[in-house]
C-alpha cells in the first residue's frame, strides 16, 4: 500500500498508464487478477472496504444469533446468570417428545402441502385468466395483489373481526343462507382453526402466486400459441401444452418460496389464534417464541430453533437437488 502510494505520488500518470496497459494485455475487467503484486494489496483493501459493513451486520445480527441459538440448545438456561448447566441433547429430547412441538411440525407441513395443493392450481387458473385480453386487466392485477402488500397483522386483525363467532360478518352471511356454523366460531373450534388460518393465508398470498405466474406468462412467446391456434388447438389446449410447461421454472420457484414461508409461519397465527384453541394451530415459530419469551425456557427455544432451521435447510437442499437443479442446468 505504501509503495503504491509512493509510485502514484512520484508519477501519477505512469501508474495509470501501466494499469490501463495491463488491462489491455490481459483483457480482463478492471480489478482483474492479472495486475502486478502491489495493486493486489490495494485491491484487497478495496474489497474489504466494500463488503465489511454487510459482513459485519450479517455476523452480528444473523450468524452470531443463529450460533447462539444452537449453543443455547445444549444448556438449561432461564436467562439469568451465565450459561453453565450443560444438559447435552436433553432439550432436543424434550422438544421432540413434546406433543405441542410435534403437532406444530405437523401443522407447518399441513400448511406447506395445502398451499401447494390449493394455491398452485388456483393461482395458475387466475394467472391464465388474467392473461387473457379482458377489459380492466391492469386494474384486476393491481387489486389481486392488494392483500399481499398489507401487513399480516393488519390483514389478521380484519379477518379476526370477520370471523367473530355469531356477530361476525362471515357467520351472519353463512347463517342467512342456511349454512350451519360451528358453536365456538371458526377460529375457536380445534378441528377447523388450522383450516381457517389456511384460508386467510390463501387470501393473503394468492396475489403473489398470480403475479409471479403472470410475469412468467409474459415470457411465453405469442408466436407459439398463434401457431398452435392455426393448427386448430383450443384455448385450453394451448394453455395446457404450451403455457403451463413453459411456466414450469416459475412454478418451481414459487413452490420453493411458498414452502419456506409456510415453515416460518408466525404472524398470522399469533394474531388469529395465538396457537390455540388447545394448541390446534401452533407452528414451530409460535412454539419457540412462547417457550423463549413467555416461559424463559431458552434451552428449549434454542433446540426448537435448531430443529426449525434443520427442517427448512433439509427441505431447501432436497428441493434444490430434486427439482430446481433442472432450471439451473437449462440456463
Amino acid at each position: 500500500m505504501t509503495s503504491q502510494g509512493a509510485v502514484t505520488a512520484a508519477d501519477p500518470g505512469a501508474a495509470v498508464t501501466r494499469r490501463a496497459s495491463a488491462r489491455r494485455v490481459t483483457g480482463r475487467t478492471p480489478g482483474g487478477t492479472g495486475r502486478p503484486g502491489r495493486d493486489r494489496g490495494r485491491k484487497r483493501l478495496e474489497i474489504l472496504f466494500f463488503v465489511a459493513p454487510a459482513l459485519a451486520l450479517m455476523a452480528v445480527f444473523v450468524v452470531y444469533p443463529v450460533f447462539s441459538a444452537a449453543r443455547m440448545s445444549f444448556y438449561r438456561w432461564k436467562g439469568f446468570g451465565p450459561m453453565v448447566d450443560f444438559v447435552g441433547l436433553q432439550n432436543y429430547a424434550r422438544v421432540l417428545a413434546d406433543d405441542v412441538f410435534t403437532d406444530a411440525v405437523v401443522h407447518n407441513f399441513v400448511i406447506v402441502f395445502a398451499s401447494i395443493l390449493v394455491q398452485l392450481p388456483l393461482g395458475l387458473a387466475l394467472a391464465l385468466l388474467l392473461n387473457r385480453r379482458i377489459r380492466g386487466r391492469g386494474l384486476l392485477r393491481t387489486i389481486i395483489f392488494v392483500p399481499y402488500v398489507l401487513a399480516e397483522v393488519i390483514a389478521g386483525v380484519v379477518w379476526f373481526q370477520l370471523l367473530q363467532p355469531r356477530s361476525g360478518l362471515l357467520e351472519t352471511m353463512l347463517t342467512s343462507v342456511g349454512v350451519p356454523v360451528p358453536e365456538q366460531g371458526f377460529l375457536g373450534t380445534p378441528d377447523l382453526a388450522l383450516a381457517t388460518v389456511f384460508v386467510v393465508l390463501t387470501w393473503k398470498y394468492l396475489g403473489l402466486a398470480v403475479l409471479l405466474f403472470l410475469a412468467g406468462l409474459q415470457g411465453v412467446p405469442d408466436e407459439l400459441s398463434e401457431a398452435a391456434q392455426l393448427d386448430g388447438a383450443s384455448w385450453w389446449q394451448t394453455q395446457r401444452r404450451i403455457a403451463i410447461p413453459l411456466l414450469a421454472p416459475t412454478i418451481r420457484t414459487w413452490v420453493f418460496l411458498s414452502m419456506i414461508g409456510s415453515l416460518q409461519l408466525f404472524d398470522m397465527v399469533w394474531i388469529l389464534t395465538g396457537g390455540g384453541p388447545a394448541n390446534a394451530t401452533t407452528t414451530m415459530a409460535t412454539y419457540l417464541v412462547s417457550q423463549g419469551t413467555q416461559r424463559s425456557n431458552f434451552g428449549i427455544a434454542g433446540a426448537a430453533s435448531v430443529v426449525l432451521f434443520l427442517i427448512g435447510f433439509a427441505l431447501a437442499v432436497a428441493y434444490q437437488f430434486l427439482v430446481l437443479r433442472r432450471d439451473t442446468k437449462d440456463a
Partner: peptide
Amino acid sequence: LFPAAVAIVPLF
C-alpha cells in the same frame, strides 16, 4: 435460508 424466527430469542 435463515429466517428471523430461528434467531429470534438470541437476537432479543
